[in-house]
């Protein structure tokens, strides 16, 4: 099975959000996604895994399978959790290279940048940064191993 590219997934999300005419409906959908996002290991809810946001906490862990980075994440805010679900759908299971180069234009296209990503309140911007940092760290590690 051919895997979809990051851009294709982003387009899918943009299209899904195109169905909603008002913000309340968009958020209801995000909340629904948040409620469905489960399976974050309780013992990983530690300060080390915390991404700092002013009004909500986000926990993020990473693993690597066959050279692809797997993200797992959780939040005490169900809306932030919904946003996390979108980010995971786009970025999890991708190579470090793909994650580093991801432009994540869907956030702007569905209007969330203006609403959420620009503020320090929810840690979304901090989380994206953290995901990219992990990808960079894995890439650097890979390069180092290849040299050896």
């Amino acid at each position: 099975m051919e895997t979809k590219t990051i851009e294709e997934i982003e387009d899918e999300i943009t299209e899904e959000f195109g169905f909603f005419s008002d913000w309340q409906d968009k958020y209801e959908y995000i909340i629904e996604l948040g409620k469905k996002l489960k399976g974050f290991p309780e013992d990983k809810r530690t300060d080390d895994n915390k991404v700092k946001g002013c009004q909500s906490s986000v926990w993020l862990t990473t693993g690597i399978e066959n050279g692809l980075i797997i993200f797992k994440s959780d939040s005490d805010s169900v809306i932030v959790k919904g946003l996390i679900a979108l980010l995971i759908r786009v970025l999890s299971g991708r190579s470090p290279e793909e994650i580093i180069n991801a432009k994540l234009e869907f956030i702007d296209k569905i209007g969330l940048k203006q609403h959420l990503a620009g503020t320090r309140t929810n840690g979304l911007a901090a989380m994206i940064k953290q995901m990219k940092m992990y990808a960079m760290a894995y890439k650097a590690k890979e390069q180092l191993e290849h040299k050896i």
Partner: peptide, 22 residues
């Protein structure tokens, strides 16, 4: 069981401006 941030965002979708956080 609910985060104040979520309440603030949802109230905003109704045009109600409240403050959330510390």
């Amino acid at each position: 069981g609910l985060n104040a941030l979520d309440i603030g965002i949802m109230l905003d979708t109704s045009g109600v401006a409240v403050r959330t956080g510390q």
